[in-house]
């Protein structure tokens, strides 16, 4: 994405649309993600409506752990947006601090999720047990992969990717904003997954 062939609006917004390329690009990507999870949610609805019986999530899943995970993700969203705000205030040190916390919270989410999975497997509750577990593992698994992807991106921007801050702070801020938008989206998906799978 270096500007070697003269592509415009990488670090500064387009005068008419008011956005940079990366911002428009990441929103397109999120629009597509909406449809990806839309496909899975509609699968959930169809399977549940067609099922003879449907287990109550709270009876067989660990609600306290999931509540903890919800809190972790919400907090990480705040630290993510704070890392962006720190850049806006030209405070690079603070940015790094908030970004590191965001990554750690993401990892904590995955660890908690890992415990949940391990517990289920111990009791031989696997995706093949019934369609509830099938959609539970598929949705949370795919969401977990998104969290992992976010962690990788954020780690890149914490270490090697942050060299751009000195070269082109505007472009770097744009990238952090895009990474943030993705991270908030992952949080947003979880906000729906949590009640749908665990509480209903």
């Amino acid at each position: 994405m270096s500007g070697d062939s003269g592509i415009r609006y990488i670090s500064h917004p387009h005068p008419v649309t008011g956005v940079t390329n990366s911002k428009l690009g990441i929103w397109c990507f999120l629009a597509s993600e909406v449809m990806l999870f839309g496909g899975l949610f509609s699968a959930y609805i169809l399977l549940r409506m067609g099922a003879a019986s449907w287990p109550e999530g709270s009876a067989i899943l660990n609600v306290p752990l999931a509540t903890l995970n919800t809190m972790i993700l919400i907090t990480s969203s705040v630290t993510m947006v704070m890392s962006w705000a720190s850049l806006a205030l030209k405070d690079f040190k603070k940015y790094r601090w908030f970004m590191a916390v965001t990554i750690l919270l993401g990892l904590a989410f995955l660890v908690v999720k890992g415990f949940e999975y391990a517990h289920k497997f111990e009791h031989h509750h696997t995706p093949s047990t019934n369609t509830f577990y099938a959609i539970y593992f598929t949705l949370t698994g795919l969401h977990g992969l998104h969290v992992l992807g976010g962690i990788l991106v954020n780690t890149y921007f914490l270490f090697p990717g942050s060299a751009l801050w000195k070269k082109d702070p505007d472009q770097f801020m744009g990238r952090i904003e895009a990474a943030g938008l993705y991270w908030h989206f992952v949080d947003l998906v979880w906000i729906f997954l949590f009640p749908v799978l665990y509480l209903l």
């Binding site: 969203s77 705040v78 993510m80 947006v81 943030g180 938008l181 908030h184 989206f185 949080d187 947003l188 906000i191 729906f192």
Partner: peptide, 9 residues
């Protein structure tokens, strides 16, 4: 989710 979308995003 609206709060997240409206303010964080």
């Amino acid at each position: 989710s609206s709060l997240v979308a409206a303010f964080f995003m």
